[in-house]
Amino acid sequence: MLKYILKRFLWMILTIWVIVTLTFFLMHAIPGDPLDMGDTGSSDAASANLAAYYNLDQPLGVQYVTYLKNVATFDFGPSMTSRSRDVNDMIESGFPASLQLGIASLVFSVISGVFLGVFAALRHNKMIDYITMIIAVIGISIPNFIQSMLFINYIAVNVDFFPIARWGTWQHVILPALALASGPMAIIARLTRSNMLEVLTQDYIRTAKAKGLTSFQIVVKHALRNALLPVVTIMGALTAAVLTGSFVIERIFSIPGIGQYFVNSISNRDYPMIMATTVIYSTILVVMMFIVDILYGLIDPRIKLHSKED
């Protein structure tokens, strides 16, 4: 098991390195000088000074090494759009809101998705099954940004309970989290349902029934665990969906998170900011996938054997 974790860990570090490197070189492949933006009046000397401030005067190789060192210590240097502020400051100020939103969405989508999926499978071809699957396909079909706008237009305005355009209390989290979670929730519900249906036809379910167990015992002890295994594997991808989704959701609901900074930094060509957000988002994702892998190994005893054989 330890060997398996170690292997996965090294793989994670490698992936992060690839992403960091790719981001760096992609950023430097962008045509146009970022320092030109909005600085039409600045002199050559001032430009040179600025270039030195952002390390842009050094050869690419040196810049890359400095950058790697900084990334390793989570120092992303000063931002380009607001020069007085460090990227780290901006991220620190945006991170809590983004984290709150992301975690709320993930938790909500997993719990409700699994619940709906299991329920639908147990009532296969009954009304509840159809209704759940209709909800799920609608959840997948209506883009999250459309959902958010509909929420604002029809719910937030009419129901005082859901305040918008501010951030602070838990009530602020509900609508954006709902919009962000509905897609992943639908995917989890569908996956859980189809796995559950598949697992329920397995021979070991019949064995359990032949032992005289109740349907409830069979579902909880034998079916659920095996049906949730594939759901665990897509948690990485779902985190990605929630992360990227947060870019638009934060914008629509005016939530002061990192997603906002990211979108702005792209239009402003703010290199350090783009790189920082990319690296942070990717790292979160890759770490999430690492956790998923480990979790999978813990839940499914057959994986352990595999790594022993390696």
């Binding site: 397995q202 021979d203 070991y204 019949r206 064995t207 359990a208 029934k209 032949a210 032992k211 005289g212 167990l213 015992q217 002890k221 034998h222 665990r225 095996n226 295994l229 839940i299 499914d300 005893p301 057959r302």
Partner: peptide, 30 residues
């Protein structure tokens, strides 16, 4: 009746046991 008065054994022992539960659990749950 199931498991108590009548016990049953199936064709494929590879698929008739739950792969993610310990054998002891599966033996004693009935």
């Amino acid at each position: 009746v199931r498991g108590k008065q009548i016990g049953m054994i199936f064709q494929d022992p590879m698929t008739s046991l739950n792969p993610t539960l310990k054998v002891g659990d599966q033996l004693t749950e009935g």
